[in-house]
Amino acid sequence: MVLRRSMLLGASALPLAFAAPSLRAQGRPVRLVVPFPPGGAVDLLGRIMAEKLAGPLGAPVVIENRGGAGGMIGADFLAKGDRDGTMIGLLGVTILCAFPFMTSRLPFNPRTDFAPVSQITDGALMCVVNAENARRNGWTDFRKLVEWSRAHPDQVKMGSSGTGTSSHINIEAINAAANAKILHVPYRGGGPAITDTLAGTIDMMFDVMPALMPHVRSGKFLALAVSSRERLSILPDVPGMGDFADLGLGQHNVVTWNAVMAPGGTPAEHLNRLNAAIRTIAGQADFVEKLKPLGYGTVVSETPAAMNALVEAETPAWQRLVQVSGARLE
């Protein structure tokens, strides 16, 4: 399955098209909704962004964690939020492009209940296993893990930040393509899943990199693969799915992204101002460098309309991925 980005440009190549007038006169901070609990990858990204955005927006940026249901609770909170330019949220590709195909009871419409601001990151998912469990079971590489799961159905337990997340869809697609038998265990966020993986209560995660990398460096996790077809330049020794064509995974290529969105109906002048602020921080070398060790690439949308076009372009690919994986939110 191929997922490609479109309508995007690197931050350094983009001129600052709009000024970002101060919100301080309103006497209100900007609220940044993170649809996961503290401690996970998206929360880390949100906190880095909040620190940087205060300057160009001229107002403090306050994180609001609204975790649960794979991001659905926080996304619904954002959809029903203030439309005056003082509320934004970090939404992942699955919320915007996959959720509509995973349930008939979605409490919001991704096409109409959110207003686009900009993409902010992209990156592949990384498969990590508890190092002690891996040594005990002989999981020296991803191939061994898949083969072991075939012989021991549902005994390899993979934690994710919730049902319907890119991690969930990704592992179900891998199970289907490779005849693997890895059991998905959803949590209310990445933080609790990491805690249980460290303890060995569950065996593995296949998730976004930021919160996983410190534990790989410490030796508590072993990195076995990434979800993109090709290897990543920052992890050249970690195989991509193209290395496992013999397992049926040669065409598997999942690359995720995060976007800054506002509640639907937010006026265009606010969206343009917010987009300008995002592009300002994305053009700062220290912001980009902070994200690199976490496995995030910095990618922004030239305009809010370009962000909207990205959602339109990628939705069919994620629809197919949901169908292949059989992942559901019910």
Rank of each mutant, 00 (worst) to 15 (best):
L232S: 03
M261C: 08
T298M: 09
V226G: 03
N253F: 04
E289K: 10
G242V: 04
V255I: 15
F206E: 05
F221P: 01
T266C: 10
I281S: 11
L232R: 04
V208D: 15
D286E: 14
L274K: 02
V299E: 11
N272M: 12
L232H: 02
A259K: 11
A268I: 12
D237I: 03
F206R: 01
P239D: 00
V254T: 08
T298H: 02
A211E: 08
H252Y: 14
H252F: 15
M261F: 11
G219V: 10
R229F: 04
A245C: 06
D286W: 14
F287I: 15
Y296S: 11
D286Y: 13
F206L: 14
G283P: 14
A259F: 11
T266M: 09
P267A: 01
G219H: 11
A245E: 11
M241W: 08
V208T: 15
F221L: 03
M205A: 08
M213R: 13
R217L: 12
A268R: 11
R279Y: 08
K292A: 13
P239N: 00
P263Y: 08
V288I: 14
A268H: 06
A282E: 15
N275E: 09
V300G: 12
L294C: 10
S233F: 08
V216W: 05
G265C: 05
G250F: 02
L249S: 00
R231S: 07
A262N: 03
G242Q: 04
Q284K: 15
V299M: 13
E269R: 12
G297P: 01
Q284L: 15
D246P: 05
T298G: 04
T298K: 01
E269C: 01
L271Q: 02
P239G: 00
L224K: 00
L212V: 01
F287R: 05
K290A: 15
N258C: 14
S233C: 05
W257I: 05
A225C: 09
A276N: 03
L212P: 05
V226Y: 00
N275S: 11
L235E: 09
E230V: 06
